[in-house]
Design a protein around this nucleic acid. Structure first.
Lengths: 346, 346
DNA sequence: AAATATCACTCAAACGTTTTCGTGTTGAAA
DNA sequence: TTTCAACACGAAAACGTTTGAGTGATATTT
């Protein structure tokens, strides 16, 4: 086993100084041609590669981005990571991933672990628990120490950083408008509790879309699913809630759901109850994941351009890192959504 | 903005030496009580945290694991990452993720980027292109430099490292046997080309299961999908191939597919052709992802315990790192599969 | 012949830690 | 009074790298 070779070893072997080796490898013209060639040949032979950690320490930059997300087993988030990774790699950066698992404490711990020199900046989407607690001190502290953050999707307004979000409001307006255009008279909404920022915005889009057409929103058509139910393990409870919605409101002929799972569940329950899709019930979801595409019938949905979101986040962060702009002019990029029409709508 | 404080700054501020500060913070009894308290109070006030990079350089360990996977937008791989992350974090490690995107070159580049000091060891699953090329020099070199590797799922036999795999062979035997037990007389197989190691094993399991019952496998019942088709963008081609299979072999009453997408496509095509599931056609897939669970009808499948696979990989790697066992006794852990019965089988 | 430029290198500091080995000051034992 | 621990702390090396400043030796200019 030949361990990694260092400058020191090469220097000793060739009987020159460390600095000569370093300079020779960087083709400095301070070094004579013969020495330079000798060193380079030796280095190549022993497959010398500079030690990243030493470079990081010296340069005070690690060329590494920390990503903190609530969950990785999730089409949306993994798409975002992919977007980040592509841009990061292109620009010579690595990505290190931490999962908050929707927990405030894990979010804080993960950030502390990484903020001590391991990375140059964060790209993150905040956990549900953090949104609920409204405790953002860890973001403020990180930024205060000179480490930039880019937030995506689930952001918080009063943190001074770049943000990349999707136009949730307009996106859901698009969806609901489409349902109304398609002749739906009673559009139901399946959404989350209001503290989830994106859920709230999507709910607002639904409401405004109705109001735009002079339709009075009816609260009985709105189902706000409590937190525990959207975990994969409580599908039956979710189904029961949705079924109740349909039973109580048989006039429902359209459903807008704020995520794939809710939309799919709505379709499943409807089919079970004998409602045909899209003839008797039209459904539109949010987030264009694998489920929407492969459902039967396939699900019309609002596509969020997750990969683009990751790519944009990475660009914002790296730009800030490399320009070292210390200005307080933070950017919020809003990505437009796209309505993908499939079989669940007429 | 208060930048991160260092030992040196604390030392200067309190007019003691750097070593005194370091020792005081680590509660060395070399340091007098009053000085110790003073230093600790100051450190707490300024939220001192040791710089990870400096520690890594000194200790020659980064407490970071490098993960290289072919694709992150994939339920199986993201589950594995989750498994790794949980164990890694518990044991004080971070994870840094590189994506090969099924490309040999990206796999090599990613490994080189990380092997220069950034990480202590790798957990990886090799790309399809690498499997095709059979070029494993980068693994050998990495191991030769004293950096341990753990391979999972897609492994290669002649690399000296720990491995965690699923019993693909037995798993597919289980699936096919179940179909036969359920009365299927003509079980079709939808699989990948043979160079994909897991695809090959699953194909073998299919064959042996038939032979065990004295059934002569018919090659016309086996569809080997060419590489390009299983990307999400060529769904129609895949569907056409599957349809042809069904048209040419109308006697098919059972299908075993080596992944979710193939199984789902089989169901979709079958439904389109008017075959009822599971009455006329029973289907079993491989990999228990979201698609299987939420398909209609829901898909019976072979569950791989992906998260456990990640967890086990992390344990193997960290054990090796911490025990610094240099022995050549490498372990191959085989995880058993589980047959999950849902609506696509009788 | 003296001054100076050029070359080809080496030294040493710096990044932030930890840790071994001093070292000067006490107080107590001899 | 001398000797010697015990105490409380500092100096310096080490991890691997880059880089500005310094240094002899030649070669060139005046």
């Amino acid at each position: 086993m030949k361990r990694k070779v260092t400058l020191k070893q090469i220097a000793k072997e060739l009987d020159v100084s460390i600095s000569t080796v370093s300079k020779a490898l960087r083709n400095s013209k301070e070094i004579g041609e013969d020495t330079r060639e000798k060193v380079q040949a030796f280095a190549k032979l022993y497959n010398y590669k500079p030690n990243n950690i030493a470079l990081s320490l010296k340069n005070k930059k690690t060329k590494t981005i920390g990503i903190i997300i609530p969950e990785i087993v999730h089409h949306f988030f993994s798409m975002v990571i992919r977007g980040i990774e592509v841009v990061a790699n292109q620009r010579g950066y690595n990505v290190i991933v931490g999962l908050s698992n929707e927990s405030f404490d894990k979010e804080v711990i993960n950030m502390e672990m990484l903020a001590n020199g391991s990375i140059d900046g964060f790209i993150l989407s905040i956990s549900k628990e953090t949104q609920l607690k409204q405790d953002f001190h860890h973001f403020h502290e990180t930024i205060n120490q000179g480490m930039p953050i880019v937030m995506f999707d689930r952001v918080v307004n009063d943190v001074k950083c770049d943000k990349v979000i999707v136009d949730d409001f307009k996106g859901s307006k698009k969806a609901v408008s489409k349902l109304l255009e398609n002749g739906c008279k009673n559009v139901g909404l399946i959404t989350t509790m209001d503290y989830v920022s994106v859920g709230k915005l999507r709910t607002q889009g639904y409401l405004e879309s109705l109001e735009d057409r002079g339709i009075q929103p009816k609260s009985e058509l709105i189902l706000k699913v409590v937190e525990e139910l959207d975990s994969e393990d409580h599908l039956e409870d979710l189904e029961a809630e949705v079924e109740q919605l349909f039973i109580n409101n048989p006039e429902i002929d359209g459903v807008f759901a704020v995520n794939e799972l809710y939309a799919l569940t709505a379709m499943k329950v409807a089919k079970k109850m004998g409602k045909s899709i899209p003839e008797e019930l039209q459904v539109i979801g949010f987030t264009d994941g694998v489920l929407s595409k492969h459902a039967t019938p396939s699900l019309s949905t609002i596509k969020q351009h997750a990969e683009e979101m990751g790519a944009k986040s990475a660009e914002l962060l790296i730009d800030r890192l490399e320009l070292e702009k210390e200005d307080d002019r933070y950017e919020t990029v809003v990505l437009e959504t796209e309505l993908i029409l499939r079989e669940s709508t007429k």
